[in-house]
Computed example of a mutant assay.
Amino acid sequence: MTELELMEELGRGNYGTVKKVLHRPTNTVMAMKEIRLELEESKLNAIIMELDILHRAVAPEIVEFYGAFFIESCVYYCMEYMDAGSLDRLCGAGVPDPVLARITHAMVRGLHFLKDDLQIIHRDVKPTNVLVNRKGEVKLCDFGVSGQLEKSLAKTNIGCQSYMAPERIQGESQNNLGTYTVASDVWSLGLSMIEMALGKYPYPPETYANVFAQLTAIVHGPPPELPPGYSQETEDFVALCLRKDPAQRPTYAELLEQPFLVNDKSREVDMVGWVANAIEHRDTHRTVSSSQTDAPPAVAND
């Protein structure tokens, strides 16, 4: 910690914070994530082993991991700083078809690498865990460590967004967890694509009476669909990911052979321009929201 200069806070959650830091010895800007732990020694050892895997997960579609250290009941790990932030904050204006293909292609390549090269299943695929930089690069983060520290269903409350596949929701509600497979992450990928296209989470909690109604809709209702304006290739790809029967969902290798991603290889996409516009939209929206928050309420007790 003495080698790090704290610059600014990037995010805060139930389990800790993410801060932008400067590593003085190497003059490298990093993102440092703090996770508060109250675990017995065996679980700490498991996390150390997992962090070692993160250190070996080197691929263009994976956020670079620099290392980790412990201080008392906290683990800190340092990773590549992605200066455009997480994808969930960049898709407020929606994501056009070619950009959606480019982002999805990077996600599938990253997930395929983790599974085939390191035998890791991400388990927490969602826009929050996809980071972007101003160069237009798209990279996965948060696989295997912090995601596994949180119990997805037990921590769910009204307003929480669930990217769990229907079979996972059913399994957890029946305490029958079974074996987590790639198919569950493929569902989460499809749901993330819908969110990018809509610019919002596809199962908005405000439309359900409670969280159980929301989860019931995910399990038993029809899967969400893309809004108008996307190609047939895109619609077909999303429909494959969101098949209710996990046995019918494609593998990553099969997804990479779909026309939606094959055609992306030969297409020119201005990712730098899209990121710049997405950041401008995000910051403008944030400024408007802030000014509305600062305005005096119409009714004092409202």
Score class of each variant (00 low, 15 high):
Leu240Asp: 14
Leu240Thr: 04
Cys241Trp: 02
Cys241Asn: 06
Leu242Asn: 07
Leu242Trp: 08
Leu242Ala: 09
Arg243His: 09
Arg243Glu: 09
Arg243Ala: 01
Arg243Lys: 14
Lys244Phe: 12
Asp245Tyr: 01
Asp245Val: 02
Pro246Ile: 00
Pro246Asp: 01
Ala247Leu: 01
Ala247Glu: 01
Gln248Trp: 03
Gln248Ser: 10
Gln248Ile: 00
Arg249Asn: 04
Thr251Gly: 04
Thr251Ser: 15
Tyr252Met: 01
Leu255Glu: 08
Gln258Gly: 00
Gln258Glu: 11
Gln258Thr: 07
Pro259Cys: 03
Pro259Gln: 03
Leu261Ala: 06
Val262Gly: 06
Asn263Pro: 01
Asn263Tyr: 05
Asn263Thr: 07
Ser266Asn: 14
Ser266Arg: 11
Arg267Gln: 15
Arg267His: 11
Glu268Cys: 10
Glu268Gly: 08
Val269Asp: 07
Asp270Asn: 13
Asp270Arg: 06
Asp270Glu: 08
Met271Arg: 06
Val272Ala: 14
Val272Glu: 15
Gly273Arg: 01
Trp274Lys: 03
Trp274Met: 02
Val275Ala: 07
Ala276Tyr: 04
Asn277Ser: 15
Asn277Thr: 09
Ala278Asp: 10
Ala278Gln: 07
Ile279Trp: 03
Glu280Asp: 12
His281Asn: 11
His281Ser: 12
His281Ala: 14
Arg282Gln: 12
Arg282Pro: 02
Thr284Ile: 03
His285Arg: 15
Arg286Tyr: 10
Val288Phe: 11
Val288Lys: 13
Ser289Gly: 12
Ser291Glu: 14
Gln292Pro: 00
Thr293Phe: 10
